[in-house]
Structures are given as C-alpha cells and as structure tokens.
Amino acid sequence: MAIFKPQPSQTASISACCSLLPSIAMASVETGAPTQATTETQTRWSSKLTRLVSGTAGAVAVKNHEKADVTLRLFLFVFSFIAVVVMVTSKQTAAIRVSPDMVIGVDAKFTHLASFTYFVAAFSVIGLYSMITGYLSYSSMKKQERNSINQQLHFVLLDSLILSISASATGAAGGVAYEALKGNPHVRWMKICHIFDTFCHHLASSGAMSLLTSVTLLMLVWFSVCAIVKNSGR
C-alpha cells in the first residue's frame, strides 16, 4: 500500500491557505454588518407599511387633523373678535372749517354706513360660530373619539356658508374704505382719510383681520374635506 507524501511545494501551498483562513473569516464578519443594517432597514419599513395598512398611521393623521381643527377655530375666533372690536372702536371726531369764521366737529363711525354695520354683524356671527364649533371639535378630541363623517360634512357645509358671509362682508367694507381713501370724483365723493386718519387706520386693521378670517375658514374647509376622504376610506 503506497503512502502519500506531500512534496515540499505542496506543503508550502497548504501552509499559505491555512494562513489565509483567519483573514477570510474576518472579512465575512465585516461584510455581515451591512447585511444586518439592510435587514434592520427592511424590518423598519415593513413595520411602517403594516401600521399604514392596519390603520394606525391613519388614526394618528386623524388625531393630528382634530388638533389642527381646534387650533384653526381658535384663530378664527381671535381674528373675528379683533375685527369687530377694531371696527366698533373706530369713532373719530374731527374739526372741519365750513366758513372762515366757523369750525364744527364732525364724527365718523361705523354706524354711518350700512356696509360697516353689516361687517360688524357678520363677524359677530362668525365669532359666535367659531366658539360653538370649536367647543364641539375640542370635546371630540378630549373624548378621543374620531369625528364622524356626518359631523365633518356638517362642518364643511357650515364653514363654506360662513366663508361666503366673511368674503361678502370683507368686500363690502373694503369697497367703501377704498372710496374713503381715494375718493370718487365722478360721483363727487370726497376722500376723507386725510381728515379722519384714525378712523381709516381702524378700517385698514379691521380689513386685514377679515382677510385672515377668510383664509382660516378656507383652510378649515380643506381640512374637513381631507378628513371626510380619510374616514370614508376605512
């Protein structure tokens, strides 16, 4: 029976291979780190997808919507309240010379023009509406109950109605305020803002608050529509 005896060159090759084994093992350990990181990333994205499909992410989105709804209705109340207060306190008395020897005091206040009276009435209603709907939305959020589709639909309809009232009141008051600032020589309406400067400053500030009120109502309509779409998809 012949016994195999390795040649010196074969012995050297075997020794070289044995010396490379530790480096190969270390390389395999090092290449395992990116593979583990990739696995963790896949697991994380899978969990996110699972939460999205199961409705957990949707519940968080609806909860955030309710917080945004309450916040916007609070802003709506603040803007409408400031608009009413600034308009009501716009009264100013100015001295006007009617003859070389006579100077009389003339008042300028919002009750002298129907558009400004309508502005105050409209934004008073908007302030009351924001208080009622804000309370309903806040109660729903505190009870940790999702707003029903019917409630959100009512919010959309009512917010749209209030938005139209806000826009009409802003346009009516803004048109008269522009005539007070620039005048209209075609119908012989004189500009009065150079005389009643404080009154006109109040008109401008109240108009700015009314524009913010309209923007807030528009955002509320958009948020309610999004909530209806999310709730109807479940």
Rank of each mutant, 00 (worst) to 15 (best):
Y118K: 06
Q151N: 08
A180T: 09
V84C: 04
C17L: 15
E30D: 02
L136D: 02
S160K: 12
T216Q: 03
T50Q: 13
Y178A: 07
A83D: 05
Y118M: 04
N184D: 11
D159T: 03
I149Y: 03
E66T: 06
Q144C: 05
V29F: 08
G134Q: 01
F155G: 12
F79Y: 15
R51W: 03
K182T: 02
A177S: 13
T93Y: 12
P8D: 10
T111P: 00
T216G: 01
G105R: 13
L158T: 15
I126M: 01
E40R: 11
T89D: 11
D101H: 10
V60L: 12
T133V: 07
K142C: 07
C226H: 07
L218Q: 09
V215F: 12
M87A: 07
E66K: 08
P6G: 04
L20K: 06
G134I: 08
S137G: 06
T93F: 08
A108H: 04
A33H: 12
L72V: 02
E40D: 14
G105A: 08
V221A: 03
V85S: 03
V62P: 00
A94L: 03
L181G: 07
R44P: 00
T56A: 14
V70Y: 02
S205F: 07
E40P: 11
R146F: 11
S124E: 03
D197H: 15
